[in-house]
Each structure stands twice: as structure tokens, then as C-alpha cells.
């Protein structure tokens, strides 16, 4: 067994044994979906536009996946540094790459499971999401989005030294971003300046990418798809650079 497998297994066990977090990771986006689904049931954007659910389901999905990736990584990194687990790993011959790769594998696994569950529920008759024919294209977008938000989580986890700080910083980043990027209501209904502003936010690209591939009524062009992916790659690289700068093996000095 490799160091990567061992750390992935340890991460996985720690994750599934934290029942509360598991529950909120999977139930929270669903809860939002149900609430919005019920509120907007049968309604359309503008008079003869597409149903709201086609906006809301991809939006809430990208928000939920990004949120979980960021929180999970930030909490793990903060805990591992605070409890000196990072030092323990440093002392073994294991490479930093295997540490990051194992956490990445968990984040991608959790994100894809979230997405599968979420889309499954959204397809139920009560919600009425209809998948576009090219829906498998959403998978690369999901992986890129998870990467971006995991990198952001690495930054947050490096800056914060307590669970409270992680929660505070992460929420301050995610909640306004969710509203500005159109996760919770259609970007088409927002004032133009908000739409322009949101181009500076990673969640906007994640949203657009998921929306454009998943939703039948918003099927985007190849250029849109490429733009979303490029945006996510750009932000991932940026956050990874910042994370490399802010990373600390230990809280002490």
C-alpha cells in the first residue's frame, strides 16, 4: 500500500465517521434544492422563458459542491496543522504530493457523489429538471470546480488556526459569492453591473459551466464551455499559488 492510499484511507475514515458533517454535506444542497424547487415550482423566468428549476438546480449544485470542497479541505488542513499531524507526515519519507493527492481524491469523490445524489433528486417529477443530451460534459467542469475550491480551501486552511476562523472566513467568501454569481437566483434577472462584477468570481464560471452542460434549456456553445473551464483553471492556478505562499507545516514559527 502506498502513502497515497494510506492517507486517502485515513481521510476517508475520518470523513465518514464525522456523521454530522456527512449529513450536512449531502443534505444542505438538497435542502436548498427542495426549498427553491417548491418556491419556484411551475414558474418560469420572464413570461415564456425556461423553468426556474433549470437555473436553480445547476446553481445550487455548483455552490454545494464548491462549498463542500472548500470547507472539507480547509478544516482538514487546519486540524492537521493544529494537531501536528502535518509534522508527523513531514517526518515520514512520504511526499507532500501524496498528502495533497489523497485529500484531492477525497474531495473529488465527495463532490461527484454529491452531484450524483443531487441530480438524481432534481430529476424526480416534483422538481422536473431535464438533462441536456451532452450532460457527461459536466464531469470535467465538476472536477475543475472542485480543484478550484479545494485550492481556495487550502488558502483558508492555511490562514485560519481555529475551526471558528475557518467557518467565518469560508462563509464570508462563499455566501456573498453564491448570491452574486447567480447560484440562488437566475443571473439573467440580476442588474447588469452585478453580472459584470461576478465575472471576477470563480463560482460564476463554475455555475456557468454546470448550467451550460446540464440544463437542456441553456445549452451553451463550445466557446462558453471553454471559457468556463479556462476561468476555473485560471482561478485554480491563482489559488494554488497563494496556497503555496501561505502554507505552513506548523503553527509554531
Amino acid at each position: 500500500m502506498s502513502a497515497y492510499t494510506a492517507l486517502t484511507r485515513a481521510n476517508y475514515r475520518a470523513a465518514v465517521r464525522d456523521k454530522t458533517t456527512v449529513f450536512f454535506t449531502f443534505a444542505f444542497p438538497l435542502l436548498f434544492l427542495i426549498v427553491f424547487g417548491l418556491i419556484f415550482q411551475g414558474q418560469t423566468v420572464k413570461d415564456d422563458g425556461p423553468p426556474y428549476i433549470n437555473y436553480i438546480a445547476p446553481g445550487v449544485l455548483s455552490w454545494g459542491v464548491g462549498n463542500a470542497a472548500m470547507f472539507g479541505v480547509a478544516f482538514t488542513l487546519m486540524h492537521w496543522r493544529r494537531d501536528d499531524i502535518l509534522r508527523l507526515i513531514w517526518r515520514t519519507p512520504a511526499s507532500l504530493t501524496s498528502v495533497l493527492a489523497s485529500r484531492y481524491a477525497i474531495a473529488v469523490g465527495v463532490g461527484l457523489a454529491q452531484a450524483a445524489l443531487f441530480i438524481g433528486v432534481a430529476l424526480l417529477p416534483g422538481f422536473g429538471l431535464r438533462l441536456a443530451s451532452g450532460w457527461p460534459l459536466v464531469l470535467p467542469v465538476l472536477v475543475l470546480g472542485i480543484t478550484t475550491f479545494m485550492a481556495l480551501g487550502l488558502v483558508v486552511g492555511s490562514l485560519a488556526d481555529t475551526p471558528e476562523a475557518v467557518a467565518a472566513i469560508a462563509n464570508c467568501i462563499m455566501v456573498p459569492m453564491a448570491f452574486l454569481s447567480g447560484s440562488f437566483f437566475p443571473a439573467d434577472l440580476m442588474p447588469p453591473w452585478v453580472r459584470d462584477l461576478s465575472l471576477a468570481l470563480p463560482l460564476r464560471y463554475f455555475n456557468d459551466g454546470v448550467l451550460g452542460t446540464l440544463s437542456e434549456t441553456h445549452h451553451g456553445s463550445a466557446a462558453d464551455y471553454a471559457l468556463s473551464c479556462a476561468g476555473l483553471i485560471g482561478f485554480a492556478a491563482l489559488f494554488a499559488l497563494v496556497a503555496a505562499k501561505t502554507f505552513r507545516w506548523s503553527n509554531r514559527g
Binding site: 500500500m1 502506498s2 502513502a3 492510499t5 494510506a6 492517507l7 484511507r9 485515513a10 475514515r13 475520518a14 465517521r17 464525522d18 482538514t76 486540524h79 492537521w80 494537531d83 501536528d84 499531524i85 509534522r87 508527523l88 507526515i89 515520514t92 519519507p93 512520504a94
Partner: peptide, 20 residues
Amino acid sequence: AFFTRLSALEHLRTVATLYG
């Protein structure tokens, strides 16, 4: 410093694997 939410043996086995 122990891996979060693991048992004593699971923790040690993880460490052992890190050492190959």
C-alpha cells in the same frame, strides 16, 4: 498528533504505511 477519528491501530497502520 494522531490522525483524526481513527482508532489507535488504524492510526499506527497509517503511519507504518507512510514509512512503507
